[in-house]
């Protein structure tokens, strides 16, 4: 058994085995499953407390209890794998690095785009007519992405917003938010 283990390690170290990709996300494999474990315990507890109309066998809380248990079990395995892949050390190293987030251009881009989307659905759509909200959102996102020249961005945003509004509201008769 030990010999087999040693051989398999040698095999991997020779580069014949596929690269161990999980180490790239090992830090996340510690944090995320830990959060999921806590949430699944809370979900189980909440489901357990649900009203039982007749029998537990068809109680509303039964299926969520089974699912939260399965989620908990799988999260434990991912968490243990994360620890084995030195996820904890990687996490500590990540936080101790200066500008770990600042230097990650892709992360910043994703964060800003997500923030713009949230702004669109939580602020612009409830407060403004759909056509105007979409126009503002398109300009903001395309400006951030530097899609093209500003004048073109304004024209594209106006044409796209109106075309979408006209196509769905009038041509396809679909109510808009």
């Amino acid at each position: 058994m030990n010999e087999e283990k040693r051989n398999s390690t040698d095999f991997a170290s020779q580069g014949d085995a596929p690269a161990p990709q999980e180490k790239d996300v090992a830090a996340a494999d510690v944090v995320f499953p830990a959060i999921v474990m806590i949430l699944s315990v809370l979900a189980f507890y909440h489901a357990y407390g649900m009203r039982v109309p007749q029998t537990m066998l068809d109680a509303p809380g039964l299926f969520p209890m089974v699912m939260s248990s399965l989620i908990f079990l799988t999260a434990v395995v991912v968490f243990v794998n994360g620890i084995r892949n030195r996820g904890w050390q990687k996490l500590k190293r990540f936080w101790s690095q200066d500008g770990a987030i600042k230097g990650n251009v892709m992360l910043i881009r994703a964060l800003v785009i997500s923030a713009l989307m949230l702004l669109y659905v939580y602020v612009l759509i409830p407060e403004l007519p759909y056509f105007v909200a979409s126009f503002v959102f398109l300009i903001a996102l395309m400006l951030f992405l530097r899609s093209t020249k500003i004048i073109y961005i304004v024209v594209i945003a106006a044409v796209a917003s109106y075309a979408i509004y006209y196509l769905f509201r009038h041509a396809l008769n679909i109510p808009l938010p």
């Binding site: 669109y120 759509i125 979409s134 398109l138 996102l141 530097r146 109510p175 808009l176």
Partner: peptide, 26 residues
Amino acid sequence: QILMPIIVVVCAIGAYASSFRAFDIR
């Protein structure tokens, strides 16, 4: 960079059109 922002706007309509709830877009 031009296509994808427009797709977000269409996605919002797609989510809303199934049951006409603004909540669904969020």
